[in-house]
Amino acid sequence: MSDHKGARLVLEALPSGTTLIADRGYDSNWFRIALVEKDITPCIPPTRSRKVPIAYDRALYRQRHKVENMFAKLKDWRRIATRYDRCAHTFFSAICIAASVAFYLN
């Protein structure tokens, strides 16, 4: 299953914003149209199989790796990666602590 099929389920829950940065898995015409209807500019590189490539902001897309790196750092914490906490508020607190430590160590 490709990513954009799962995106249909969460499209209504997207918070308001100006731009959505996503990878090639979310490149579909219906998803781009749905984002534009919600006044969100899609920054999604086209798949290699597209006959006519769609333009996107390459400089903005390059910033996406910072978010990916932060998730990778959070998963270094065993408690977060395995989700030991039963309560959502305790799990969120562990994420906040791990993010704070990762921020101050770098």
Rank of each mutant, 00 (worst) to 15 (best):
M1F: 02
M1T: 00
M1R: 08
D3R: 14
D3M: 01
H4W: 14
H4A: 05
K5F: 11
K5S: 09
R8K: 14
R8H: 05
L9I: 10
L9F: 05
A13K: 12
L14P: 09
G17I: 03
T19R: 13
T19L: 08
I21Y: 08
I21Q: 04
I21D: 09
D23N: 07
D23R: 01
Y26S: 00
D27A: 14
D27K: 07
N29L: 13
N29H: 08
N29W: 04
I33H: 08
A34D: 07
L35T: 02
E37S: 11
E37G: 05
D39W: 12
D39L: 13
C43T: 12
I44H: 10
T47Q: 15
T47K: 15
R48V: 10
S49I: 06
S49K: 15
R50C: 06
K51R: 07
K51I: 11
I54C: 11
A55D: 09
Y56L: 08
R62A: 15
Q63D: 13
R64F: 13
V67T: 13
N69P: 01
N69M: 05
M70N: 08
L74R: 07
L74Q: 02
L74E: 02
K75R: 15
D76H: 12
D76N: 09
D76V: 00
W77T: 04
W77N: 04
R78Y: 08
R79C: 01
I80V: 14
A81F: 03
Y84S: 03
R86T: 13
A88T: 02
T90D: 12
F91M: 02
F91D: 01
S93W: 02
C96H: 11
I97N: 02
A99M: 15
S100L: 12
S100E: 07
A102Y: 05
Y104C: 11
Y104G: 01
Y104F: 12
N106E: 12
